[in-house]
Design a binder for these strands. Structure first.
Lengths: 359, 359
DNA sequence: TCAAAAGTGTTATCCTTACACCCATGT
DNA sequence: ACATGGGTGTAAGGATAACACTTTTGA
């Protein structure tokens, strides 16, 4: 028996979630019903000013401290909606005013954290996370709905200006300390020790992997270094108020869902032409590069990016040039849809740079 | 607006499911409850005699015609089980006697097909599919539980002896006919035409892709060529009894879950060392190759496979040799667990052959 | 004339693929 | 002897990464 369970093998393209769940204590036994409510949650991504944004709502309710934003969410009502995805689209439309285009399911989470329930009751909710991609449209958003830069929630994921200082200054020292402490008694057997997980996910033993967003969030959660962990009753020993917040927290397990969405998007970019769901009809190659870079959180080599895109057959000239600020006008391209029929796995098989912009 | 939604972009590593759902008519409106039952379903894979097998159960109930096998399944009871995965493990243990090792979530399905409900009632069930890998152990299985060769359910997926005849003889002609017919009225807009989907998934315009198991099953389902489609009330126009069965059907949507599991396993093999969950503690390189080949459904080049495995750092000599039938005794290896800490994406980046065994 | 960005060419390197061939054992 | 599978060497080809350099615009 090799003993390789769960989270070790999951990343980067198929994230593990269960690892956190296993540490939460059982709910106080009460009623006997097996019925469960299904929460649908959407991480809706759009590009605004070359930065990836996600749609957030501020649900009404008792405003304890400063309210953390939430993803658009709602309950699945099977009698009203034939399928989960139709229900999701309907909820999002009603809650935000937005019509979703591309939608894909991410993961189904079994527990949202005991202390974070909507009404404080003990009703069980299973939440299904979705990723949606949309172009920023002129659709007016409902009140309380807005866009939120995803790197505000994950500042350690943006390497476009070199390694984020928060990693060396805040995260690495405290995670190293956490990893050097022994596991508390009663912890389920893990396939990897704390230190190994830290080294893998934060690029200490392997190069930093842009796709391991979820793994990193889970480590931070377990170490009690994100606000959600304290809120969920983990890391009671931590003097939470004394610590600087690592990224902006969100309601429920929504930051975990966002981490899942970022992992999926970053991973899938490399073998599916998802990116064009975020692009306007026509664009220049450098427009495209900036969007890819913003999603991946790192800079790419310009000349090689051009060639990659061109001889992967991903785009075709749309005719005409774009007059841009400074510099020679660029040719305008559009997505070449036929690539789907011609190539087995069309995408941006790029090498990331993880240093400040290369020459 | 490029109009690229859903299923086009999903394969091969992140399968789309929603496409089928969209075609099923709404359930007869009845009660008003929003509570939904959560079904947990496990595709449990093991190798027996170098063939991949899945665990099936024959649930008790009215035996109309010959009963199709089911995956082990059960309802999630949140008051008894803290997490979805714990619930799954418990159900499987009770139903089959098996202790699961490696488990990962696949997908959450919103509708199991109206005509295929357990008691015939209209209760809504959301089913969550899981993939589990296990070594065949001496654990005695409960009554009615057994192993089933997965290529019996998907005979067109095994290319180890060249292209399966069922493709040229049965599937391609009928799918071509289906693709040439116009979409029925009322069909939701699809990003790709029938013919394009057929060409992509069945290797007519791109090389056959071993990972697109689910895409292929979905096309067959929509074309009404698998028994489940007729059972679910699709393809009423087909004279079903006159057609030879394309693969052994399963209960509910379990063959769809199995297809998802096969897609995931075949895809993930290439960048995660999942395979070793199916291997004994020690093995020869050829043992390993045969298991990989059985999962992928195609032969690999022997010499290159050896080198790939060795200098990917996936294995290390365990000492000793295996006395085997015919031929020189082979060195015995074991999984090298440290590879997880050293390589970003350790796996079998093999090129499949899709012809009879290469020299 | 300079800055800024577009766009092209070329090489060195690595990895993959394919092929050739030898080794050790049982019958 | 020969069949069978174990195991090694190497060369051709393709993809990638890095670098140098030219072109076209606006200020």
């Amino acid at each position: 028996m090799t003993g390789l369970h769960n989270s070790v093998l999951q990343e980067p393209r198929e994230p593990s979630i269960a690892s956190i769940d296993l540490d939460i204590e059982a709910p106080s036994a009460a009623a006997n019903a097996v019925a469960v409510e299904i929460g649908l949650n959407a991480a809706i991504v759009s590009m605004i000013a070359d930065e990836p944004q996600i749609l957030t709502v501020c649900p009404a309710g008792p405003r304890t401290v400063k309210q953390a934003p939430a993803l658009p969410f709602g309950l699945f009502t099977p009698l009203k909606h034939r399928t989960l995805e139709i229900g999701l689209r309907d909820w999002v439309k009603g809650q935000t005013g937005l019509d979703l285009g591309y939608v894909e399911q991410l993961y189904t989470f079994g527990d949202r954290g005991r202390h974070a329930r909507l009404g404080g009751d003990s009703l069980h909710v299973v939440s299904i996370g979705y990723l949606a991609l949309t172009r920023t449209e002129d659709t007016p958003l409902a009140a309380g709905v807005g866009w939120s830069d995803w790197y505000e929630h994950f500042p350690w994921e943006d390497w476009r200006d070199g390694k984020p200082p928060i990693l060396s200054q805040e995260i690495e020292p405290r995670l190293t300390e956490w990893a050097s402490r022994p596991e508390p008694p009663g912890t389920p057997r893990r396939p990897l020790a704390r230190m190994d997980r830290l080294r893998m996910s934060f690029g200490l033993s392997v190069p930093w992997d842009d796709e391991r967003v979820l793994e990193r969030y889970e480590v931070l959660y377990e170490a009690g270094l994100v606000a959600e962990a304290a809120r969920d009753g983990r890391s009671a020993a931590q003097d939470w108020a004394a610590l600087p917040a690592l990224g902006r927290p969100m309601m429920f397990d929504h930051r975990r869902i966002l981490a899942t969405a970022m992992s999926r998007l970053r991973g899938k970019l490399k073998y599916r032409p998802l990116i064009f769901e975020l692009m306007p009809e026509t664009f220049t190659l450098f427009d495209l590069q900036r969007v890819v870079e913003a999603i991946l959180g790192s800079y790419l080599h310009k000349q090689n990016f051009r060639r990659l895109v061109e001889n992967a057959g991903l785009v075709e000239p749309a005719g005409g040039v774009a007059a841009r600020t400074g510099g020679r006008p660029a040719r305008v391209y559009r997505f070449r849809r036929n690539v789907l029929l011609e190539r087995p796995a069309p995408g941006f098989r790029v090498k990331v740079h993880n240093v400040a912009r290369p020459a």
